[in-house]
């Protein structure tokens, strides 16, 4: 008998003659206290993100490239990791071309092993989409894809995320159910609620521990 069989054997023996407890899941308790009028959802999400040093910018589907450009310029950043395979990647590239801007666009278009050094040490900013936001906790839902891989929202010191206001929901339970997460989880699914932080030294909060030092959420109010 191997370790697996011995462990399972012991556990089964301990449960002999017992009945499994029925599932009396109380979804009202996870939704009722965490429900908001539609017009308050974005406000709540933004204030919770700001409380943990996240920056939020209220903008529109047409205007966000200009806001991103301004955010980069004000930080002296002249390059951005962004996927040319996404609609927002193409929109941003179009905006740069139209306005004769020289921001260098970098694509995450090869396995990380082939450009790890550059990703880690000379990629100052990235931009990704989101699958929605959660008003209750001020969280972004990010599911990495081949176009926007896992490290894109983690390694660059500045992470800019696009969030459609219409995709901000009340709470985690709701988005899990409506987007049917249990049936279709990707290899990695994330909730991101602010820039990286730690309070490990004398309970003093410091930002930019290992992940992004800054998170800017572009809220597209008309999308």
């Amino acid at each position: 008998m191997n370790a697996r069989d011995r462990i399972l054997g012991k556990l089964k023996q301990s449960l002999a003659g017992t009945t499994p407890i029925a599932d009396d899941y109380d979804d009202a308790l996870l939704t009722a206290p965490w429900s908001y009028p539609a017009e308050h959802r974005v406000t709540r999400l933004c204030s919770l993100l700001q409380a943990v040093h996240g920056e939020t910018v209220l903008t529109t589907a047409a205007e966000w490239p200009a806001r991103v450009s301004e955010a980069l310029a004000s930080r002296g950043i002249d390059e951005l990791l962004i996927s040319p395979a996404t609609a927002h990647g193409q929109q941003f590239a179009g905006y740069l071309a139209l306005n004769g801007l020289v921001t260098r666009l970098k694509a995450y278009d090869r396995p990380v092993e082939q450009w790890k050094d550059e990703l880690f040490f000379s990629t100052p900013a990235s931009l990704t989409g989101t699958l929605g936001g959660i008003a209750a906790t001020g969280s972004l839902v990010v599911w990495p894809t081949p176009a926007e891989p896992r490290l894109m929202s983690l390694v660059p010191p500045l992470h800019i995320a696009l969030l459609k206001a219409s995709e901000v929901v009340d709470n985690l339970y709701q988005i899990m159910q409506t987007q049917r997460w249990a049936e279709r989880l990707p290899t990695n699914a994330l909730l991101i609620s602010g820039p990286s932080k730690t309070a490990d030294i004398q309970q003093t909060l410091a930002y930019g521990a290992h992940g992004p030092k800054e998170l800017i959420v572009m809220v597209l109010q008309d999308a």
């Binding site: 906790t137 001020g138 994330l190």
Partner: peptide, 9 residues
């Protein structure tokens, strides 16, 4: 209310 990252692998 939540941690910065919830990472589901």
């Amino acid at each position: 209310p939540i941690t910065t990252y919830v990472n589901v692998i």
